[in-house]
Amino acid sequence: MTGFRTRWFSRVGRGDGAVGGFLAHRAGVAGAVVLAVAALVAVIAPLFIPADALDVTRVSDAPWQAPGLGHWLGTDHAGRSVALLVVQGAGTSLFVGLTAAVLSVGIGTLVGIVSGHFGGLAAGVLLRVTDFFLVLPALVLAIALSTVLPRGLGTIVLAIGLTSWPSTARMVRAQTLTIEARPFVERARALGGGHGHVIGRHVLPSVLPLVLVNATLAVASAIVAESTLAFLGLGDPTRISWGAMVHQAQLHGAVPQRAWWYLLPPGLAIVVVVLAFTLVGRALEAVVTPKR
């Protein structure tokens, strides 16, 4: 029994090493803190915002108010508080970013491992398809998909997730091939281990840290992609998101009106959250990639 206990403790100890490694990257930690705050806001804030405050038909405040005492970030074209809109939009942006990233990284990991581990015709075709989609402009495909599918959150997630997986697939495939070329995989085969054993015990555990890094970076690009689709008017019309706010600002002429308080906050929110995900991703990458 002591054997088990020491093994468990030594593993926990090693886990601490990874956490410590991450904490050494100040930018990454800052990013993580920003994300925690953003997530908290996204979850809690809607509970406190009265539905009337965001309904165009029921708002009574004057439109295009500059920031001041009443609305400390001013109001939009319909008299809604920009501050409340930004807070409300956090949920949509983060939700789409996370789910689309999970979808995309999930597909990418599956395709990558399958085409890396199994040789033969099927893997060749998969690789060819991956390369094809890798080259195509993902945003153009996402636009096409969201144009033909009914508007909604699901469409956006699908459009982004289905078009952004190839880079993950390439990365996972390369990593799978690297791992499979290692002598310890040959040793596992010589011991009698089959596909399941090799993938489950050797390939997957080695690929997962990189997949995590990739997922973090994928969230960043998914949020940018969501905002772009929303800006082009392809978002879910029933929901407020940061991209949709910029779309509205453009539509109602915030630029000629010099309504900087309407334009600046949603864009800054995107930049800060995307940058935070990027910084966390890079810090994770530095932790999981062994130094030479």
Binding site: R182, P183, F184, E186, R187, R201, H202, S206
Partner: peptide, 9 residues
């Protein structure tokens, strides 16, 4: 195998 460092995961 030749290189024990790489023969062990």
């Amino acid at each position: 195998l030749q290189d024990p460092a790489s023969a062990l995961n």
